[in-house]
Write a protein that binds this DNA or RNA. Structure first.
Length: 428
DNA sequence: TGGGGTTAT
DNA sequence: ATAACCC
């Protein structure tokens, strides 16, 4: 049996994929979702907050809240005003600085990685289920698929227990035969519980969705386009003529989401490893002068330089993103990017401020490329992003070492990263 | 409506 | 560079 996982950054799920050695026909996927992660981190930082209704605030929004607050009617992404109205006792903490969330998030990722050690044969779990079974379906121990899913439920329990013991974090888990179903079933019993889906109940699970927007992979835009076609429920999507759907959405999206509507999803668990980009952003009511923009960019850049220095890799591209004020447009962001000049890349690691001034200058060029500063403008967001991260070039190009260093010889294919999988054999 | 992040085109 | 998705 072979296991791989996808890493967790703030708010992201942890996946653990269990596949039979040398086969890909049947998988067991464990999806772990932390409960209101930011609120949990805040309660760890300040234990006095435990037991009280707590909301995490960014600007005028309560982005998430603990379960005490939810019981009193507070919802994720509710405005501070509505939340206070619903729940006057609500305690709010500011969550705009993500540093502590990132720190704990990295610990989770590290932990999951360490837990990928092969299971020893003397610690094989007993063949019983851990947690809930979706629909209370009865287990058939003669069914090989059932047996393998039970092993998955044991692994999920073990991961959740380790996360609680070592980091004090609680979360839900779902165990199923693919990522879609594992994610959907993880939310059936909340908070801090886990559920396994046996294959016979797959249809019940997806038919329990009241609207296609609840299907992971169908977002705001796609849902709107589907609604225009008269598709709003899962059965609507299942029975809609494939050819017409393909013409409307393109063959790729059409085929993928129609398979999703049947609970089918063959997408692999992709190990995410280290982040591929770092960005810092701030939103505000109004920014309408170049000087104002420059000072905001300097702030964002200072934090970014620290993060990049800690990471150790060097970014080779900078991107500036803005949002212009507009009353209607839901999605409205523009960006400009450019390569970072090699002499600036070198200065990035030193911890000096040498990198600051020239970098601000190149970002301000991007700014003026997007915004005509001679005309009035009104911005509501600035984001600076470092991407195209490459490992530090320790070996000199053109030397034997360069070609003998694996991380360098593959550097020209940044999209491709390979991972060693740990392997261990288990009997069913 | 926030402060991130990824992938596909 | 944009658009869509995720939390």
């Amino acid at each position: 049996m072979e296991r791989a996982r996808a890493g967790a950054l703030a708010g992201s799920p942890v996946h653990d994929q269990v596949v039979p050695a040398g086969s890909s026909s049947s998988r067991v996927i464990v999806h772990v979702d932390l409960d209101c992660f930011y609120a949990q981190v805040e309660m760890i930082s300040n234990p006095e907050l435990k037991g009280k209704p707590l909301g995490v605030q960014q600007k005028s929004l309560v982005v998430t809240c603990n379960y005490e607050a939810r019981e009193l009617g507070v919802k994720k992404l509710m405005s501070v005003r509505d939340a206070k109205e619903k729940c006057p006792q609500l305690v709010l903490v500011n969550g705009e600085d993500l540093t502590r969330y990132r720190e704990i998030s990295y610990k989770v990722t590290e932990m999951v990685e360490k837990r990928l050690q092969p299971l020893q044969s003397d610690e094989l779990p007993a063949l019983t289920v851990s947690g809930h079974v979706y629909n209370d379906q009865s287990i058939n121990l003669h069914d090989i698929l059932h047996r393998r899913l039970l092993v998955g439920s044991q692994m999920a329990a073990e991961m959740r227990e380790a996360m609680h013991d070592r980091l004090g974090l609680t979360g839900c888990a779902g165990v199923a035969s693919n990522k879609l179903l594992a994610k959907l079933v993880s939310g059936v019993f909340k908070p801090n519980q886990q559920t396994v889906l046996l294959p016979e109940s797959s249809q019940d699970l997806i038919l329990s969705l009241k609207h296609i927007k609840e299907m992971p992979g169908i977002g705001y835009k796609t849902a709107k386009r589907l609604e225009a076609l008269g598709i709003s429920s899962v059965p609507d999507l299942q029975t809609f003529p494939s050819k017409i759907l393909e013409k409307e959405l393109g063959i790729s999206v059409a085929q993928r989401i129609q398979k999703l509507s049947f609970g089918e999803d063959n997408s692999p668990v992709t190990p995410s490893g280290l982040p591929q980009s770092f960005s810092e952003e701030d939103s505000f009511k109004k920014c309408s002068s170049e000087a104002e923009a420059k000072s905001k960019i300097e702030e964002l850049l200072a934090s970014l330089l620290n993060r990049v220095r800690q990471d150790g890799r060097k970014p080779h591209t900078v991107r500036l993103t803005i949002r212009r004020y507009s009353s209607e447009k839901h999605y409205n962001r523009e960006s400009r990017q450019c390569p970072i000049p090699p002499h600036m890349i070198q200065k990035l690691g030193a911890g000096s401020y040498d990198a600051m001034t020239p970098m601000v200058d190149t970002i301000m060029k991007l700014f003026r490329n997007m915004v005509n500063v001679k005309m009035p403008f009104h911005l509501t967001l600035l984001n600076v992003c470092f991407c195209n991260l490459k490992a530090v070039n320790t070996a000199k190009k053109g030397t034997i070492d360069y070609y003998l260093t694996p991380s360098l010889s593959t550097m020209s294919h940044p999209g491709k990263r390979s991972f060693k999988m740990k392997e261990t054999h288990m009997e069913d």
